[in-house]
Each structure stands twice: as structure tokens, then as C-alpha cells.
Simulated scan of single mutants.
Amino acid sequence: MSDPKNTVLVTGAAMGIGKAVAENLVAAGKSVVLMDVNGDALAETVRALGPRAVASVGSVANPADSEAAVALAIERFGGLGGLSHNAGIQRYGDVVTTSRELWDEVMSVNLTGAFLVAKAAMPQLRQHKGAVVLTASIQGMAAQKGALAYVVAKHGLIGLVTGMAMDEAENGVRVNGVAPGSVDTPMLRWAIGLDPDPASLDAVIDGMHPLGRRGKPEEIASVIAFLLSDQASFMTGETVRVDGGVLARIAGAPKPEDRVRK
């Protein structure tokens, strides 16, 4: 039986950042329980990862599904020592055009889902002095136009990081977050495909990052793996930007070559 301390529940694990997290952890010798609503993609990911990975098909919006994933971790690996929450959806609309149904959909996955999976996992995490990392977004620190529900949910997710970190410190559980910029995931490619001029938007997205490109899932995963590890043993309540410098840039500031020389 595996060491429960080295077992991590990874949500949103069928593809994108969650999949990259699972790959990183298994490569480091960890065991993982992968949770996602996409059963076919999840099964494929688990097959590729081998015996240290098991699938738990379900939605973080359903508390019974999160409880089942934790139970599977106990059954297969003896317990649970980490949680990497990456499940999320992107929807668009402002305060007028966002329907109540769309609002509830986004909140149920992006914010309430994080609460529910953390709630299900926390007894095990307390027992094994584990760690939690929630994947938020730079839109939890700033905002783009026309994505109100997503922005609010990601702001709330960063609040969940801070609040849980304070509550769980005395229990030996660390809680941190990451706030990625644009990352080359299926969700980003889907969003770009909604634009009337996807090629132009592609270039804009790369150009808004000072490093000149979007991130890769594995680049976010490496930060998450660090925060889950004992190397980050004195970090809690922190949300780390992994954004290629987007929020460090002064918007509208002229480049040196654009300045008029006198």
C-alpha cells in the first residue's frame, strides 16, 4: 500500500493543467486519484500514467462525487495527503447578459466545487498533515471584460485559499493557490474559437504576455507540485502568479523604442 502522504487527489485531471499535474506527480513517485466529468479522456490519461493512477469519474459540483474520490484514495492508497483542484469552466457575459442559470453553472464548478472537494478531502488532509493547491487565475486578481461570473468565481477562489489557510494552519494543513495567465489548454483553444477572428486573437493573447507567449500546462503543474511538496513547507495562504508577467506590466506604458528622442 502506498504512503497516504504521497497520494494526491487531482481534479480536472483529464486534460489541460490537471492532466499535467498528474503527470508531474506520478513522475515524482506519487500516487494520484484523477477526477473529471469526461470519463473517456480520464480513462485514457489513467492508462498512460500506469498503476499509480486511478480514475474517479464525477463532477466537483456534486458533493457525493468528491466524497467518492476521497473514498477511492483511501481504498486504493490508504489515504490522502494532497489536493490539487483544477476543475473549471469558462463562460461569458456581463451583469445584464449573464443569466441566473449561467451564473449558477459557473459558481457550482469554479467556486462551490472547490469548496466541496476540499470539504470532502480535509479530514484525510488533517490526518496526514497534507497540502491543498487551488488553481485560480489572474482573473481572480484583475478582470477581462465580458466574463463576469468567471471573474467573480476566481476572486472567490483566492478568498477560499486565504480563509482555509488560516483555518487549517493549526491542523498542519497548508493551503495555497496558483493564478495562471493564458495557458495552452483545450479550454483556452475553445474560447479562442468563439472569436470571429481566431488567428488575430491568438496573436493578441501571446503578445499580452511580456514573455511573448502563453504558458504551457506543465509550467503551471511544476509550480503546483512544488506547493504540494515539503519544499514549500513554510508557505500557506499564498496565491502565486504564474502569468508570464501579465500583471507586472504597466498597461499602456510606452516601449523604449516608441519614445520620441529629443
Rank of each mutant, 00 (worst) to 15 (best):
A61C: 08
V95M: 09
V133K: 05
V173A: 11
I17Q: 15
T162I: 14
A253G: 06
A114R: 09
S56G: 01
T236A: 11
G12K: 09
W190K: 13
G88Q: 04
I138T: 06
E67R: 14
P63H: 06
G18Y: 04
D197V: 07
V54G: 04
G212V: 00
P196F: 03
L25M: 03
S108H: 00
V204M: 08
G159Y: 02
K145C: 03
Q231F: 12
V151T: 15
P196S: 03
G18D: 12
R47Y: 13
M1A: 09
I89W: 00
G82D: 07
V242R: 05
E23T: 12
V106A: 06
A191S: 14
W103M: 07
G39T: 03
G12Q: 07
G244N: 07
T239N: 09
V175C: 10
L227Y: 14
V132P: 03
L72Y: 11
V57F: 12
A27Q: 11
V106I: 12
P180K: 03
K216P: 01
R241Y: 01
Q90P: 00
R126L: 02
F115C: 09
S59A: 11
L125E: 04
A20D: 11
E44Q: 14
Y150Q: 06
T236E: 11
H155A: 08
L34P: 13
D230Q: 05
R76G: 00
G193Q: 02
I250G: 00
G181Y: 05
A121R: 06
R174S: 10
T135A: 03
